[in-house]
Amino acid sequence: MHIPDGLIAPQVYLGAYAVAAPAWAYAVRKVAREFDDALIPRLAVLTALAFVLTTVMVPLPGGTSGHLVGVGLLALAFGVWPAFLAYSLVLVLQSLLLGAGGITVLAINALAMGLTGAAVTVGVFRLLAKVHRPAAAVIGVWLGVVVAATLVALVLGIQPLMGSDTEGQPLFFPFGPAVTLPVVVGPHLIIALGEGILTWMVLSVVERRRVPA
Rank of each mutant, 00 (worst) to 15 (best):
V45Y: 13
A149S: 15
H2I: 05
G117M: 07
A25Y: 13
E207Y: 01
L189S: 11
H67W: 07
P187H: 10
L115P: 00
A137P: 00
L96I: 11
L89I: 15
W142K: 02
L128D: 10
L171M: 13
L98M: 14
A112D: 13
I190R: 06
P170F: 12
A118S: 15
L93M: 12
V69N: 07
P59H: 09
D165S: 10
G117R: 00
H2T: 08
F51M: 13
V52D: 05
L49A: 14
G168D: 06
R133L: 10
G123L: 04
K30E: 15
V124Y: 04
G72Y: 00
H2F: 07
G79A: 11
I103A: 09
D36L: 12
P10V: 05
I197P: 00
E34C: 06
F35N: 05
L171I: 06
V206R: 00
T166Q: 14
L49W: 08
V146R: 04
A136H: 05
T121I: 06
L85Y: 03
A153H: 05
I40D: 02
V138K: 00
S65H: 13
L46M: 13
G176Y: 06
G157P: 03
A32S: 13
A178Q: 14
G99S: 07
R208V: 01
A77S: 15
L161M: 14
V147C: 11
L171F: 08
I108M: 01
Y17Q: 01
A137N: 02
A44P: 01
M57V: 15
A44Y: 08
V12K: 01
P41I: 12
G196I: 07
S164P: 00
P177C: 13
Y17E: 03
S164Q: 15
T180F: 05
L156V: 07
V146C: 11
V146F: 12
L171H: 02
A129M: 12
Y13K: 02
V31Q: 07
L74C: 08
A129H: 14
A38V: 12
T150I: 06
P22T: 05
L161K: 10
D37P: 00
Y26T: 10
A153T: 07
V141R: 01
G102V: 03
R33F: 10
L156G: 01
S88H: 04
S65L: 10
W200R: 04
R126N: 14
T180D: 08
S65D: 09
L161G: 03
Q11V: 14
R209D: 06
G176V: 05
T47P: 02
G15T: 03
L161Q: 14
H2V: 10
S204W: 11
